[in-house]
Design a protein around this nucleic acid. Structure first.
Lengths: 224, 224
DNA sequence: CCAAAAGTGTTTGTGCTACACCCATGT
DNA sequence: ACATGGGTGTAGCACAAACACTTTTGG
């Protein structure tokens, strides 16, 4: 243990997590305001260094919890960014993760130990630190692709939702409109969701049937 | 630079590359014989530590070249393995890559600075060091998936090849037989390949038309 | 009664699947 | 002549895409 770590203390390993949610008809990312010199007034995806006795996955989970207060959400390794000069403070290799949070879980405890933390729509992003701009673009691409051939939508939707909610989530992320009849046909034929029996209420229009996922296990399924 | 690397010399970063080729009707991986204590008589995917002034990608390229003598082959980041105790010699986080080498490039300079190095069929693998068993299984899965929705076969085939060669490559990797007529129909309709005009020769049967890829750029295309 | 969103079927085309025989060459 | 692999077409079926109107509620 000693030998290797002492001889090669070249690089440091960090994790950064791109946290997505869908609210207000937009795909949003959670960012933290930086204060250090070259990146004052820049924002960054939450992250931090991997501790010596901590797995890389555990580090991502810890950072996710620190930023959002949530656990047990969808969290997947995205890519490892290892350019030599990606971090002006030193040689840091960053393992990026993607997390998906259901729209309703938003108002939990977003603020914690950070100066400023906020959700930004993926379109109009602020100035970003490091290579986080690139990371986020890459994450959006991955999210789009996975939406099509897995059932990850479940991790963006609340426990109960309408089929219109679900379709909106797809449309927002994919960036294109979907045919309502075809969408419902497809989703219902996959039998991933079941009616709860209750109805959405409170708005100035016809109530909609609420659905719930039969199972919230990650599956590879051709959806779109 | 100094501050961070000195304060957190916890972990070391390595790259390991799973190098695939298809020969003798089998998907094979290139492995290196280990000699250090807990892994004597074990084999491992070629890899090494990332140097301080070297990007992670560059490290993978360097290790690939050291093991095979080839450059400019398909090389893609696979996954980062970061369990705390994955390496008994110390805390090493490994960024795994996948490389694909065309079947003919095999007999180049496979032997170099290693004690022993050899190709193993993905089925009957020897005892493997670290978590390389897991890595290889993961890599095979990725390769299978990518074969279906990208044009990466090009990186496993020589410059000129017959459609039967190509179909064999698919069948070996996917592990299931494909219909000859449907396969040819599909491949030709995609217009990825063009006849060279020449014919294969020398074997005890009818010669086959040779094809060449119109372009060897990586593309996302639904193939299977 | 009006606005707003929920809900519902049919038709058409495209692409995947399954399937069997003749051809050209070397020995 | 025979063994070996090369090369070719069609029909059925399942799924994706396009498309418009009626219903229910709150205001």
């Amino acid at each position: 243990m000693e030998k290797i770590t002492r001889k090669y203390q070249h690089a440091v390993i960090a994790t950064d997590t791109i946290i997505f949610t869908v609210v207000d008809d937009e795909l949003k990312v959670l960012l933290i305001k930086m204060n250090k010199k070259p990146y004052a007034d820049c924002w960054a995806a939450p992250g931090g260094l991997v501790k010596p006795d901590e797995s890389v996955d555990a580090s991502a989970k810890r950072n996710l919890f620190a930023a959002t207060g949530v656990k047990d959400v969808y969290l997947e390794q995205l890519y490892t960014f290892g350019r030599v000069n990606r971090d002006p403070f030193g040689r840091v290799v960053s393992v990026a993760y993607v997390a998906l949070i259901p729209s309703e879980g938003l108002k939990l405890k977003v603020s914690s130990a950070y100066d400023d933390i906020a959700w930004f729509p993926c379109h109009r992003l602020p100035a970003l630190a490091y290579d986080h701009d690139h990371m986020i673009q890459y994450a959006v691409g991955r999210l789009r692709a996975k939406l099509a051939y897995t059932n990850i939508v479940y991790s963006l939707l609340p426990d109960e939702f309408t089929l219109t909610d679900m379709q909106n989530t797809y449309e927002i992320i994919l960036g294109r409109p979907l045919d309502k009849r075809n969408f419902r046909k497809k989703i219902l034929s996959l039998a991933l969701v079941a009616k709860t029996g209750t109805m959405s209420a409170g708005k100035a229009h016809r109530p909609a049937a609420l659905y719930r996922f039969r199972s919230r296990d990650y599956k590879m399924i051709q959806i779109m």
